[in-house]
Structure formats: structure tokens, C-alpha cells
Design a protein around this nucleic acid. Sequence first.
DNA 1: TTGACATGCAGGTATTTACCTGCATATTAT
DNA 2: ATAATATGCAGGTAAATACCTGCATGTCAA
Lengths: 106, 106
Amino acid sequence: MDADKVFKALGDPTRRRLLDLLCEQNGQTLGQLCEHLDMARQSATQHLDLLEAANLVSTVKRGREKLHFINPVPLHEVYERWVRKFERQRLSLLHDLKQELEGEDQ
Amino acid sequence: MDADKVFKALGDPTRRRLLDLLCEQNGQTLGQLCEHLDMARQSATQHLDLLEAANLVSTVKRGREKLHFINPVPLHEVYERWVRKFERQRLSLLHDLKQELEGEDQ
DNA sequence: TTGACATGCAGGTATTTACCTGCATATTAT
DNA sequence: ATAATATGCAGGTAAATACCTGCATGTCAA
């Protein structure tokens, strides 16, 4: 997994919206997805290309249509390898800050 | 929580590195953090400002120093409100894709 | 007090990014 | 066959971004 591509892909609201749309209904065509976006089809394609490069979306051609499927695996890996590290230390990290705010010599 | 700010903040490798550094040792000064980065101090400050705007980092001034504390809460909220939605549907989403790849009429 | 140190502030620039338009190609339906 | 449809491809532009340099301010220590 290329963590940088995944995070960069998630860093744009349009791309998160696309993932949301695919979560509601998986396997949508480019045209279907565009109906919900206020931008040119070609712009949406560029966003979808980035999602595909990050392996967050996989596509299948069916005739003249292109179907888009969300792939939740990279999200899971991001969580497992990156977010959980902070989760584990959550309470202690907050404790550090609280101590500092209260003054360490109390 | 401003999800967009959080995702944008996480979308840069330098800022993820800063969070990593704070996870290793919380409460570091700007100078300490800069020792691990290959860029001007002022550039690091800009990254830290974005992390602070996203509420991923809180700061406390101590004399002429500025201490930085990681705040794991937004990460947790991002996970809870956003990533878990996909987690929950993980298996079924993969199933959709598998079906499509195998041909739906089989 | 004065010099060293830690950080803040104000631009400036080159790259990346998020859009767009115009046209080409491939598939389906009449 | 031909028209309509779905998507691909190739630039072009304006804004955002990630850097930088130079200088100012505030704090500590000798």
C-alpha cells in the first residue's frame, strides 16, 4: 500500500464524496457518479484516476461503460498501520497535554 | 471537527512525520521537531500551523519555547464517523467487486 | 545589559492541483 | 449505416501549496 497516495486521495472533498457515493451504491458508472457532482465529467475522471491509483477504487469495463467499485482494504490498512498507533496512546497523550496545561510542578 | 482540515492535514508526508515524531515523544519544541526535518524552520512552522488548525496538535508556550502536543481525538473521530462506515461494509463491497470480475451471470 | 537563542512575521517563487474546453474513440440502438 | 451515448485523451489556466529568504520580537543566561 502506498500510504501517501491513499492519504492524498482522501485529502480532497470531491474524492471523499465519490467514495461516499460508491458506498451507497457500488459499481456505478462514470456518468452516474457525475450526476451527483457539480463539475465536468473530465474533472471527475481525474479524481477517479487518483482514487484508482491509490487502490481505493477498482474499475471494470462493461461495453462502453466503466463501472467503479470501492475497495475498502487500503482504508483498513491506513487505520491498522497508522491510526491505531495513536489510538493506543490516546489516553496517555491527552494526559501529557493536561499535565502541561495544568503546570507540570503541581 | 472539520473533517476537511483533518484530511488535508494528513495528506502531506511532512505533517504525518510530525505526528509520528510527537507520538514518539510528546511535547517537543519547534526546534526539536525541526532537527528531524530537512527543511527550514519556517516551513515546519507552516506545517504545524495546519496541524493546529485541524486540531491535531495543541501548543503551549513555555518561556521562549513552544511545546507541541498531539491530539488524537480528531483522528478517532475521522475513524468513527468516516472509516468505519466502509469497514462495516467491507466484506459485502469486496463481494460486489468479486462478482463483477467473475461475470454477474454465472 | 548584552549576546545568544527560540520563535514570529512578511513577502516571494516554483510546483502541484483542480478545474476547464475541444476533440477523438469506442459502443450501442434505430 | 448512422446517430446517440459513454468514455478517453490532450492541452491550457487559475488557485492552492510547499518551499524559501530576510528581518523582527521576545526570552534567557553570562
